[in-house]
C-alpha cells in the first residue's frame, strides 16, 4: 500500500513535468508543422539562467525563475525571427521540403545554443534552490513539498493552457490555425500574428518547464539532446499536434518508468517505455491519439 502510494505520487510528478515539457512542442507542430529540435536546448537555457540569476546574481529563486522564463521566450523569438521566418519565405526549395530544412535548422540552432550555454555556464550540472522547503508525510511516505508544488504548478499551467485554447478568441484562432491555416486566413485572420503568438506561448511553456526541472532534478547543457528526445517521444506517441494525447503519453511513460524502477530495477527504467513505444506505433502508426 505504501509502495503503491509512493508509485502514484512519484509517477504523478514525473508525468506532469513530462507533459509540460512536451506541450509546447506539440502546439508548435500543430500550428506550424515544425518539429522544433532546439526544444531541449531552450528548456536547459531557462534552467541555467534561472540558476545563475537566483544564486550568482542573488536575485532569489522567484525573480531568477522569471528571468529564466523570459530568457526562453526571447530565445524562442530569436529562433523564429532569424531561422524559421527566413527559411519559410525562402524560394529556393520546394514547399513540401520545407519541414526537412526547418528541422535541420532547429537542430543547428540547438547546437549553437548548447555551445554558448556550455561556454558561459560550463558543462557541470546545477540545481536551483527549492521553490519551497520542507516535506510532508503522506501515508508513511516522505514527500518534499517542492515536488508537490512542481506537480501542482505544472498542472495549473496545463489547465491554463486548456482554458486559453478553449475559451479565448486568440486561443480558438490558434486551434483553428492548426486545422486549416488557409481557412483562417480567408476569414480575415493574420496568420503571421498567430504564429508570433504560438512561438511566444511555446517559449513560455518551455521556460516554465525548464525552471521547474532545474529545481527538481537539476540541468546541464549536456542533457539538452536527451530532453529533446524525451519530448519528441511523448509528442509522437500522443499523436502529433494533439495536446491531450501528449498528456496521456507523458503519463504512460512516466508511470511505466516509475513502476519499472520500483518493481524491477532502477537501471532498466527507460526500457519498457521504449519497447511499448514500438508496439504502439506498430499497432497504431499515427500515434495513440493521432488524427490521420
Amino acid at each position: 500500500m505504501e509502495l503503491l502510494l509512493q508509485i502514484l505520487i512519484s509517477g504523478f510528478i514525473i508525468g506532469a513535468i513530462y507533459a509540460l515539457g512536451a506541450a509546447g512542442l506539440t502546439i508548435i507542430f500543430g500550428v506550424s508543422g515544425i518539429l522544433n529540435l532546439a526544444h531541449g536546448a531552450i528548456v536547459v537555457l531557462a534552467a541555467l539562467v534561472a540558476w545563475y540569476c537566483a544564486l550568482q546574481l542573488h536575485m532569489g529563486i522567484y525573480w531568477g525563475g522569471l528571468a529564466g522564463v523570459a530568457a526562453a521566450v526571447v530565445t524562442t523569438y530569436v529562433l523564429y525571427a532569424l531561422v524559421v521566418l527566413p527559411l519559410s519565405r525562402s524560394r529556393q526549395m520546394a514547399a513540401d521540403e520545407l519541414p526537412v530544412f526547418l528541422f535541420v535548422a532547429t537542430l543547428l540552432f540547438a547546437l549553437i545554443l548548447q555551445g554558448l550555454l556550455e561556454w558561459f555556464f560550463g558543462s557541470t550540472p546545477v540545481a536551483t534552490p527549492a521553490l519551497i522547503d520542507g516535506v510532508i508525510h503522506i501515508g508513511g511516505n516522505t514527500v518534499p513539498l517542492n515536488s508537490v508544488l512542481i506537480g501542482v504548478v505544472a498542472w495549473m499551467v496545463l489547465g491554463g493552457l486548456w482554458l486559453f485554447i478553449s475559451f479565448t478568441r486568440l486561443g480558438k484562432a490558434m486551434l483553428a490555425a492548426s486545422m486549416s491555416p488557409r481557412g483562417l486566413a480567408i476569414i480575415g485572420y493574420d496568420i503571421g500574428r498567430i504564429h508570433l503568438l504560438v512561438w511566444g506561448l511555446y517559449g513560455l511553456l518551455a521556460g516554465i518547464a525548464g525552471v521547474l526541472l532545474a529545481s527538481f532534478i537539476g540541468a546541464s547543457s549536456g542533457v539538452a539532446i536527451n530532453l529533446t528526445a524525451t519530448a519528441f517521444t511523448i509528442v509522437i506517441l500522443g499523436g502529433l499536434g494533439n495536446v491531450l494525447g501528449s498528456l496521456a503519453a507523458a503519463y504512460i511513460l512516466g508511470f511505466l518508468g516509475t513502476l519499472t524502477a520500483f518493481l524491477i530495477a532502477p537501471s532498466l527504467r527507460e526500457i519498457p517505455g521504449l519497447c511499448l513505444l514500438i508496439i504502439i506505433l506498430y499497432l497504431r502508426p499515427q500515434g495513440l491519439f493521432g488524427r490521420h
Binding site: 509512493q6 508509485i7 505520487i9 512519484s10 510528478i13 514525473i14 527538481f216 532534478i217 542533457v223 536527451n226 518508468g257 516509475t258 524502477a261 520500483f262 532502477p266 537501471s267 532498466l268 527504467r269 527507460e270
Partner: peptide, 9 residues
Amino acid sequence: APDTSDFTP
C-alpha cells in the same frame, strides 16, 4: 541508469 532523473524509487 546514469540518466536517472527521479531517485524516489
